[in-house]
């Protein structure tokens, strides 16, 4: 008899050591998330997957499932907090969907659609952020970066290259690259690297592939991220 816990009244089986997120995904239940990716170590930083675990709040991607625990995720309060988190991400960067080639395949946008965000609500920062177009095949567009560190993890854990890192603190935190010049072209990044295609937003994109699938015909133009295969953990944007 498999061990189980309760998520929003539904019995979810889990294997010993699995996180709430992993068990929920395996059972086909979507918990909103941005920095989580099933192939990488949990990061627990975006806080979108915050759930109530027996009355205490915790990240579903870092908390392990336990026998009989009661978890709430789809509550008005938690989704309200998630919407506010996404709104803060929108105003903290320069996320201009109309001019972004990732629009329609972007998980930040999709999470906002899922949560019914009609306005970013908070006062925009309009921060000055650098674009690095030096690499022949990959564009680094920091205006769209949400600091999820998926590229950092992919480059370090899969590609074995340590191309990306986060530098600075607070509002000055930014994605930096491992080259004395600070230019992406001077790193060992290759377009075939996992790090070059794992970005959930349009911060790291392949050049010359932005509009292979036209705007309006992309994944999240028609599908709620909650319905996407394996609870939104496929790889949208591989066009």
């Amino acid at each position: 008899m498999a061990k189980t816990f309760i998520l929003d009244g539904k019995t979810i089986p889990f294997e010993e050591g699995e996180t709430i997120m992993e068990a929920a995904a395996a059972a086909g239940v979507y918990i909103p998330h941005l920095c989580h990716h099933p192939e990488f170590k949990p990061h627990g930083s975006c806080k979108l997957c915050t759930v109530s675990i027996g009355g205490r709040l915790g990240a579903a991607c870092t908390n392990k499932a336990a026998e009989g625990m009661k978890v709430e995720s789809e509550t008005e309060a938690l989704n309200g907090d998630r919407r506010a988190l996404v709104q803060m991400l929108f105003v903290e960067g320069n996320h201009v969907c109309p001019s972004c080639e990732k629009s329609g395949n972007c998980q930040l946008q999709a999470a906002a659609y899922h949560l019914g965000m009609l306005t970013p609500h908070f006062t925009h920062f309009y921060p000055a952020r650098d674009v690095d177009a030096s690499h022949p095949d990959v564009l680094l567009e920091r205006n769209r970066c949400i600091l999820c560190e998926l590229c950092v993890r992919a480059s370090r854990d899969v590609d074995g290259k340590h191309v990306f890192g986060i530098g600075g603190r607070g509002i000055r935190a930014r994605l930096i690259v491992n080259a004395a010049s600070g230019r992406l072209a001077d790193t060992s990044l290759s377009v075939t690297d996992r790090a070059a295609e794992v970005c959930p937003t349009g911060a790291i994109v392949r050049k010359r592939h932005g509009f292979t699938i036209p705007i309006g015909k992309r994944l999240y133009d028609h599908h709620d991220i909650a319905e996407a295969p394996v609870a939104g953990m496929e790889r949208p944007g591989r066009d």
Binding site: F90, V96, C97, P98, S99, L118, P120, H124, Y126, A128
Partner: peptide, 18 residues
Amino acid sequence: VATGACAITGGIPAWRNN
């Protein structure tokens, strides 16, 4: 009613904010 990206976020014209 704030209608469209520019009314809601500043949109493309706000690119000049930097």
